[in-house]
Amino acid sequence: MQFKSIFYKKKKYASIPTEKAKQEIPEGLVEKCGSCGKIYYEKEWSQQLKVCPNCGTHHRLTAYERIKALIDEDSFTEWDPSMETTDPLKFPEYQEKLKKDQAKTGLKDAVVTGKGTINGYETAIVVMDPFFRMASMGAVVGEKIARALENARVEQLPMIIFTASGGARMQEGMISLMQMAKTSIAVDRFNRSGGCLINVFTHPTTGGVTASFASIGDYHFAEPKALIGFAGRRIIEQTIREKLPDDFQTAEFQLKHGQVDKVVHRHELKALLTTVLDLHQPKGRDEL
């Protein structure tokens, strides 16, 4: 044990490779698993949907990567792609941060919404993108999700939401908090019209998103080891003055504590969603 380790605690949960770590590898050729360090050709890496064949770590997907992996080719119609925040609070450094993430992701904000088919089954879909401001929820995220739920309600489509979020977006202050209300009411309206809401928790889903639409789906699936929780680990440890177990707030922990229906490997997700969509086809019910 080195002297340094007295001061620096070893991380007990999976972490995302830093920008620096990524830069060590020539881009477009190979990818390195940030968890176990094994190196893969880019092609294999994307075929594996960024799940490390060696250690099983589910690395984060961008919204479009997720859609590409799931939605039948050429069937996706995007909703509200150009919606943008106005920086309503004129919050310090927010504009710069937005511009940087917009350039990095090609997105206007942290969520992609739309509809398409999965193995032929029509569905509405919402994918939050953790590469954009950690998919925090401000006015755009809230509005796009609420509109998507309304569209799905009107078009009588099921809805699949891939959740990921650092929580409410601080830089939009109380407007962000109110998106919890907006999206939850939208879920309620969708529910009451008989809509089927399938939420898939991906790493990490926390804070105001966990405390709104993410936690009130009809079905809650989660990717292995995904962090799912309301309060942050550090805050809890400071509050209760004790060390939390390693598996605290993981998908498996939430399964054990009754917040998640099923933990699903990314490679099995499409088949599972197809089956669930099939089980909700009105045609099937008529024939019974």
Partner: peptide
């Protein structure tokens, strides 16, 4: 704020708040 604690997380702090929002809606 809502209590950030172990038991609170185990019993679904996020779900409890979310459900209130959804139920209060109607």
């Amino acid at each position: 704020g809502a209590h950030p604690g172990k038991g609170a997380e185990e019993r679904g702090q996020g779900e409890a708040i979310a459900r209130n929002l959804m139920e209060m809606a109607h």
